[in-house]
Write a protein that binds this DNA or RNA. Structure first.
Lengths: 232, 232
DNA sequence: ACAATAGTGTCTGTGAGACAGTATCGA
DNA sequence: TCGATACTGTCTCACAGACACTATTGT
């Protein structure tokens, strides 16, 4: 039997000698559908939190990076082949996150246009579907683990970054109209915007094409592309 | 021997059955000293990267949260008793970060006024000292692991948040003069500021006191405090 | 012609940046 | 009185916000 001092030394400096937490990656796949910000959630088919909604996630394997683990899970869950916007959000390490054992979760968020999503129901899950983010956050339905908190954190991050970055572009395809893009901004910011001001603001980030599109009736819109897509 | 399919199933869904990475917390303790942004680094006394500079860090114990692990390490390393500004930065999970084994590192940064630091040399370390951040980042000295990348990331974060938040206040004490605070902003942003403009900008966040202070010679400065400190 | 959506011109207020000026100390 | 630092007033210009206006389609 080792002395208490030796034990302390070992547990602090030699990670081979003491218990390790599990490391998971949870991912928030956001999209815009029917004029609402939505996120992919799964309904759990096992304990704990059976029948509850949860963020999809995977455990990190020894031969993959965190981002690779996230992409693997996202590909499985949402059937996305192409390149997508992926950003590490935050790492959650509370002791009682998971009642079974100590799990540290690194959360990633992906922003995708809705037409790129093709999800199939995953294993050990009752359903996989898109849910209205605001309704889930302020609703009464119980979410598994600390996933409501994570979703709330991500929602704030999106709102903030919409103000000072161009992440909103990730919700539209390569080609888009300015009314479409403005609608995305309005949904993310939760407020209406003036057309003229919006166009002045994003003018430097977009380039007009020759193409027009009639979405429904009335005057058609001009199709634009992102500037950096052109430069490449 | 289990079948390949069974193996896959287990490795994906039952974290008890497969190998886990180690989880560490690395912390960047920043302060301002001699008109420079500085960070606490240790010189390693063991392999790998023996004699190299490294960020201080600890392995996360099973009975402490990530933030508790960071605070424990910071208290040991920098002798800080009081409450300090602490912010999670990013989680680094590349496969070859540590040549010995798979280590996932959650990085935290702390911002402290220099008069609160009282560091003693830690165990298994040759020295613990403050280093000029810009010199380390652009210098030639080898840093252990991916710690130069982490330091660079933190430096950018500080610069960005100085623009749109009040984190700079964490480098001064409870009481401060506006010339002192302006100097902090200038160091963090890497550029000179106009007195009048600076004062207009921060006017809403500070409250003047009756006290004055003569730092050296010439006209003394008025002492200010943060607004939220007064409200509490 | 009219309804509905796409797109533009312009006024105003706010705030950052630049700089000149005044105030108060020690020597 | 002078040098050095603390502090203030104000001009300019860019830009976000608000709103009115014109343009182009389908019915």
């Amino acid at each position: 039997m080792k002395s208490r001092e030796e034990q302390k030394f070992i547990s602090e400096y030699n990670p081979d000698e003491y218990e390790r937490p599990s490391v998971a990656v949870d991912f928030l796949i956001f999209t815009i559908e029917d004029d609402r910000l939505k996120v992919i959630l799964v309904r759990r088919d096992e304990m704990p939190f059976k029948d509850c909604l949860a963020l999809p996630g995977v455990f990190v394997k020894m031969d993959e990076t965190l981002e690779e683990a996230a992409l693997r899970g996202i590909r499985e869950e949402a059937g996305i082949k192409d390149e997508i916007y992926l950003e590490q959000l935050y790492t959650w390490g509370d002791l009682d996150r998971d009642p079974r054992m100590r799990v540290i979760s690194v959360s990633y968020m992906a922003l995708v246009p809705s037409d790129r999503l093709h999800f199939s129901k995953g294993m050990r899950v009752l359903e996989t579907a898109l849910f209205d983010v605001d309704e889930i956050i302020s609703g009464n339905e119980e979410l598994a683990f600390d996933h409501r908190k994570i979703l709330h954190y991500a929602r704030e991050r999106i709102r903030n970054k919409t103000e000072y970055s161009d992440i909103a572009f990730n919700f539209v395809g390569e080609e888009f109209t300015l009314p479409q893009l403005q609608r995305v901004y309005e949904i993310l910011l939760g407020k209406m915007l003036y057309k003229a001001n919006f166009r002045k603001k994003i003018n430097d980030y977009v380039t007009e094409t020759e193409k027009m599109i009639s979405c429904g009736a009335y005057r058609p819109s001009r199709i634009y592309v992102r500037n950096d897509k052109l430069i490449q």
